[in-house]
Simulated scan of single mutants.
Amino acid sequence: MAASASSRKNFIDSSLSMITKYGFDGLDIDWEYPSRRDTVYGSADIDNFTTLLKEFREAFDKKKLLLTAAVSSVREAASQSYNVTAISQYLDIVNIMTYDMHGSWDAVTGHNSPLFKGEGDEGAVAADLYTIEQALAYWIGAGCPPEKIAVGVPFYGRTFTLSNANVNGVRAAANGAGIAGPYTATNGFLGYNEFCNLLQTESWTQRYDQLAKVPYAFKDYNWVTYDDANSIALKVDYAKSLGIDKIMIWSIETDDFHGLCGYGNNPLLNAINLALDSSFTTNRPSSTSSPDATTSNSDSSSSSATSSSSSLPIPTPAASVTPATICKGGLYVPKPGDCTSFYMCVVKADGSYEPLEVKCSNGLHWDQTILACNYPSEVKCKA
């Protein structure tokens, strides 16, 4: 379609007809991917995609419609598909799909959406890493204005089958897709709502990659990479540090919208909204300056095998605190005099904030530097 002027016009005209009839705000182009996979035109796709967007822009400007596109994230892939500077001038929002960076197609375990390089990435060339940090560095460096970028955040995890149940860290050997969820029903894929329920009802060992700033978990031969409210808030805060103020979600129906896991309804969406709120100043994550940057919680000894290091425990309404005071401290605030608890500020329907008191799992302390419950030896806290 994109290679033919008449086909492009037909597609644009028919899109406009549908958008106008049903009152949509615009159109998101999701071409996966120009010049790759099943292409028959090869590198000509790059210019054809740009031309398609240019012609859409001319038609949409007349009706004040939005034009967005979902694009490949990492340098290795994106550099083959787009003239970044050219497409950026025609798009209102560039939705960068910063997820599916690793999955069951890999021979070893890896994070679905790591913020920074993590465990097992020692010695890797930074520009070649599949991380949000490097993806955004590429897109901004290639000419995409930060104010047009929306960072993709996954509301799902990727699952692997371990080759050896006793070798269960990041970059452990794997034999393809792992467990499927009861609703998404796809091996290698679990909605957050599905997995948070498993964590409540089954005995999983949870770990937190302090370098990549994301959790993972394993049980027998099953290994899962996922995001929770903590890791998502850190992703948003990092995006904000680059001048990015938009988040794209894939996909909203796998949030815990019924609140069955004990964190309230839509905990991931709430985490995004709270982190985007400019009234908060959270601890900005750094790939180099964090005191935890050279430490990883990959110990698989029995003493830590049942500890949860990043998933938020069950929150309860905070007693005898003033929301206006507590919630000025950030998204997550330490509880004074109690190393094992913290406050999570949740937005209410009227726009005000309610501090919920959260207690870490047994044996863990709240770590304000990584915004997660952590092992006491890694936390500086005096009760």
Score class of each variant (00 low, 15 high):
5 A>S: 12
5 A>E: 11
9 K>I: 00
11 F>C: 01
13 D>S: 15
18 M>L: 15
24 F>T: 10
30 D>V: 14
30 D>K: 05
30 D>N: 13
36 R>K: 11
38 D>A: 03
39 T>N: 02
40 V>A: 07
40 V>P: 03
44 A>W: 01
46 I>R: 12
49 F>H: 11
51 T>D: 05
52 L>I: 02
53 L>P: 04
56 F>D: 04
57 R>Y: 04
58 E>H: 01
60 F>S: 09
62 K>N: 08
64 K>E: 15
69 A>T: 13
70 A>T: 15
71 V>L: 11
71 V>G: 09
76 E>D: 14
78 A>F: 02
79 S>H: 05
84 V>W: 10
85 T>E: 14
86 A>E: 03
87 I>P: 04
88 S>K: 06
88 S>G: 06
89 Q>K: 10
92 D>T: 05
94 V>Y: 02
98 T>K: 08
101 M>A: 04
102 H>W: 07
103 G>P: 01
103 G>H: 06
110 G>V: 00
116 F>G: 06
118 G>Y: 09
119 E>A: 15
126 A>I: 03
127 A>D: 11
127 A>L: 03
129 L>F: 06
137 A>V: 07
143 G>Q: 09
143 G>S: 11
156 Y>N: 05
158 R>V: 01
160 F>H: 05
160 F>V: 01
162 L>K: 07
163 S>H: 07
164 N>L: 03
166 N>R: 06
168 N>W: 01
168 N>T: 02
172 A>N: 04
176 G>A: 04
178 G>M: 08
178 G>A: 09
178 G>I: 07
179 I>N: 01
181 G>I: 14
182 P>E: 04
183 Y>S: 08
184 T>D: 13
188 G>T: 11
191 G>D: 13
193 N>I: 00
194 E>F: 12
198 L>W: 02
204 W>Y: 02
204 W>H: 07
204 W>S: 05
210 Q>Y: 09
210 Q>V: 05
217 A>I: 12
217 A>D: 10
220 D>L: 07
223 W>C: 01
226 Y>S: 01
227 D>W: 08
229 A>R: 09
233 A>L: 14
238 Y>M: 07
249 I>E: 08
253 E>V: 12
253 E>S: 11
255 D>M: 09
257 F>E: 07
258 H>Y: 12
267 P>M: 06
269 L>C: 08
270 N>L: 08
273 N>S: 13
278 S>N: 13
281 T>L: 12
282 T>R: 15
282 T>H: 15
283 N>Y: 11
283 N>C: 10
286 S>D: 13
287 S>K: 14
288 T>L: 15
288 T>Q: 14
291 P>G: 01
292 D>M: 15
295 T>K: 15
301 S>F: 00
302 S>I: 15
308 S>P: 04
310 S>N: 01
311 S>R: 11
312 L>K: 04
313 P>I: 00
321 V>Q: 03
322 T>Y: 05
328 K>Y: 03
331 L>C: 09
331 L>T: 12
332 Y>P: 05
337 G>F: 06
346 V>G: 01
356 L>D: 15
358 V>W: 10
358 V>Y: 10
361 S>G: 07
361 S>V: 00
364 L>D: 06
366 W>D: 02
369 T>C: 00
370 I>P: 03
373 C>A: 14
374 N>I: 14
374 N>Y: 10
378 E>Y: 15
378 E>P: 02
379 V>P: 08
382 K>G: 02
382 K>A: 00
383 A>Q: 10
